[in-house]
């Protein structure tokens, strides 16, 4: 479509304005992460947008080094919460992918589990807060509160619908001739699934798993409800980054926020092609 020069100018102006606005919060946090305490907060005029004397102190502080400027030191470093977020998100992804992929294959090829699609949509519609009360009681009963595996189990169940719908659309798209040929050769159904279908689906499995991982990594509420001390996740831990002496530890919060924000942004851009499919439950493919 031919469009005039004035449209092109308008387009760039509009897009660049919106891009700039949408970057401000992220860049502010990134800049804050490298600011020394003197530049954290400011009253009116002396606000610094870019760190005047950039420092890695905030990151060092997070991992236990006491800072002379801050006076305080953390009694618990950020290392454990990072591990908690990683372990629970990775194993949650594993659970979601195993259950979701096999169910998707069962439905896609054998039509079993016909109740699952709607049940999983329903599960997705429910606000986690409204479902979590009995889960909290059950988890306390089963001694799963404040464990990474208890958290991983809930993550796995909560994100399984995404794994299921994503993999179902990938299986539906896959030509069946290859599977049929292997069946004619005398392979069992299970062997075909294991030896032929799954290896062929490797890219689809990888992008679905990354998508599910991003969702798990992004959780706050479930971690808040199910972890109390030893295995609190990153965002839950972040709330504790303030002290009575210095108030909000903005720099430390920003540094940890940056650490938490990087994996999903990088992975999300890497699987950009499949984001639409994942977010719309496979209703829309790009």
């Amino acid at each position: 479509m031919n469009r005039s020069l004035s449209f092109e100018i308008f387009r760039y102006a509009a897009i660049l304005t919106i891009v700039a606005l949408s970057l401000v919060p992220t860049l502010w946090m990134a800049s804050m992460a490298f600011k020394p305490i003197a530049e954290w907060s400011a009253t009116g005029a002396d606000l610094t947008w870019w760190p005047k004397s950039p420092t890695l102190d905030n990151f060092r502080f997070l991992f236990g080094e006491s800072s002379s400027d801050l006076i305080v030191a953390l009694d618990r470093t950020a290392a454990r919460p990072i591990l908690a977020s990683l372990l629970s998100a990775v194993f949650g992804t594993l659970i979601a992918m195993v259950a979701g992929t096999s169910a998707a294959y069962g439905l896609s090829r054998f039509g079993s589990g016909g109740n699952l699609p709607l049940a999983l949509i329903q599960l997705r519609i429910f606000p986690p807060m409204a479902v979590m009360i009995p889960v909290m009681i059950m988890w306390a009963f089963l001694d799963l509160i404040d464990t990474w595996y208890g958290l991983a189990l809930v993550y796995g169940i909560v994100t399984m619908p995404f794994a299921f719908w994503l993999m179902k659309t990938f299986f539906d798209d896959m030509p069946r001739e290859i599977e049929d040929a292997a069946l004619v050769e005398g392979c069992s159904r299970l062997r075909v699934f294991w030896k032929i279908t799954l290896p062929m689906m490797r890219p689809a499995l990888a992008s679905s798993a990354l998508f599910v991982f991003i969702l798990n990594w992004s959780d706050y509420l479930i971690g808040l409800l199910l972890t109390t001390r030893d295995w609190v996740t990153i965002p839950v831990y972040m709330a504790s980054l303030s002290s009575s002496m210095t108030g909000q530890l903005y720099g430390a919060k920003a540094a940890l926020g940056l650490i938490a924000a990087i994996p999903p942004v990088v992975l999300g851009i890497a699987i950009q092609k499949h984001l639409v499919r994942g977010l719309t439950f496979g209703a829309l493919k790009q």
């Binding site: 946090m29 706050y220 938490a260 924000a261 950009q272």
Partner: peptide, 14 residues
């Protein structure tokens, strides 16, 4: 697309 990939809780702190 960056904003939607930022962890919502982190967006809250931002």
């Amino acid at each position: 697309l960056i904003p939607m990939m930022v962890v919502p809780a982190v967006a809250g702190y931002m």
